[in-house]
Design a protein around this nucleic acid. Structure first.
Length: 191
DNA sequence: AGGAAGATCTACT
DNA sequence: GTAGATCTTCCTA
């Protein structure tokens, strides 16, 4: 199990988003280890991206997007916490939204956190997976590249899959390029 | 004080 | 599958 390095995140957000597919998200929670495979992501840029939280410039609530890559950026939308990982070349601005997971360990704990029973509905959306993994703003800004972190992302290795792209979901003003990435034919990708 | 926001759930056709 | 209510924070006035 190898933790992804800071350098992994210090690149173009679209590349980071694509390469996060198939990686493992691990959440340490109450001495349990909840984990899932990342199956869907979206890339967001800085002030040139109308859908980005940093579109209107640096504010207190979005300043993490301007800071160190490889840390979480968590915010609330419509009553849901959404998990982003800050990703951009040094000095730039950007983040990758984790949109869906395939649950792998402590599935019973996730079901309890979510209050649902059907496996396919457990983590197939950005607000759902944060609830399943007990991710809230108290984890905002933590380092996902540090060994002892409550939240880390590791390489799974050897797995093969096909990547599909599309435009981002729920975005009013999208950029011309396709910035959503997901694993083809995976049933945990959001609808 | 009011409204928007990268979503989700429920209750229908 | 779609429509509408509702979720909570931060921004703008």
């Amino acid at each position: 199990m190898e933790i992804l390095s800071r350098e992994f995140y210090e690149r173009d957000p679209a590349r980071v988003a694509r390469e996060l597919l198939g990686k493992l998200l691990i959440r340490r929670f109450n001495s349990k280890v909840l984990s899932g495979k990342i199956v869907e992501t979206e890339a967001y840029y800085g002030e040139e991206d109308p859908a980005s939280k940093s579109y209107k410039g640096r504010k207190k609530f979005n300043e993490l997007m301007f800071k160190d890559a490889g840390k979480t950026f968590i915010y609330m939308v419509h009553g849901n916490w959404l998990l982003n990982i800050v990703a951009h070349p040094k000095g730039d601005v950007g983040a990758v939204l984790i949109r869906a997971l395939e649950p792998l360990s402590e599935i019973e704990t996730m079901k309890r956190n979510r209050g649902v029973n059907r496996l396919e509905l457990l983590t197939n959306g950005p607000g759902k997976l944060t609830k399943a993994l007990a991710i809230t703003n108290i984890l905002n800004g933590i380092d996902v590249t540090a060994k002892n972190s409550k939240l880390i992302i590791v390489k799974e290795g050897w797995e093969k899959f096909e990547v599909e792209t599309s435009h981002r979901i729920g975005v009013k003003n999208d950029l011309p390029q396709k910035l959503r990435f997901y694993i083809k034919n995976n049933k945990f990708v959001s609808k």
